[in-house]
Simulated assay, not measured.
Amino acid sequence: MTDLVLVERSDAIVTLILNRPEKLNALNYALIDSLLEILDVVELDDAIRAVILTGAGDKAFSAGGDIHEFSQSVARGPDAALQDFVARGQRLTARLEAFRKPVIAAVNGLAYGGGCEITEAVPLAIASDRAIFAKPEINLGMPPTFGGTQRLPRLAGRKRALELLLTGDAFSPERALELGLVNQMVAHADLLPAAHDLARRILRHSPLAAASILTAVTRGINQSIAEGLLIEGEQFSRMVPTADLREGLDAWITRRAPRYPGNWAAHAAKG
Rank of each mutant, 00 (worst) to 15 (best):
N25Y: 01
I138G: 07
D169Y: 07
P193E: 04
A266W: 12
L39K: 01
N222W: 10
P143A: 13
S73P: 09
P241L: 04
L177R: 15
A125M: 01
Q83D: 15
A265I: 11
E174C: 09
Q184H: 09
S34Q: 11
A127Y: 08
E8V: 08
A121K: 04
A12G: 08
N25L: 06
G220Q: 01
L18V: 07
G141C: 10
E232L: 15
G233D: 14
G233K: 10
V122F: 02
I118W: 00
G220E: 02
S172W: 05
G55K: 01
A269P: 05
L152P: 04
P193Y: 11
P78Y: 08
V103A: 04
L31C: 07
A131Q: 03
R76C: 11
P207Q: 01
E22P: 05
H188I: 06
A161I: 12
N28C: 13
I17N: 02
G157E: 03
S73C: 10
I126Y: 05
L44P: 03
F146Q: 13
S206D: 04
P102T: 01
A98I: 07
S172Y: 09
G57D: 08
H196K: 13
E247S: 05
G147V: 09
F146I: 06
R158V: 13
N139I: 12
S62F: 01
E178F: 06
Q90P: 07
A134Y: 02
S206P: 01
P258N: 04
E22L: 07
A210P: 03
T167C: 08
E120A: 14
F171V: 08
R175N: 09
N108S: 09
E22Q: 13
A265D: 15
G115I: 04
V122D: 02
P207W: 00
A75V: 08
V240E: 14
L245D: 07
L53F: 02
A189E: 14
A47Q: 09
R154V: 05
N263C: 15
R95S: 15
R204H: 14
I48V: 13
F236E: 04
A170I: 04
E43V: 06
Q235K: 07
I225P: 08
A131K: 01
A94W: 06
V51Y: 00
L24K: 10
R151D: 06
S212T: 11
V122W: 01
H205E: 12
F99D: 03
A98P: 02
G147L: 12
A30D: 14
I253K: 13
L229G: 08
I126A: 01
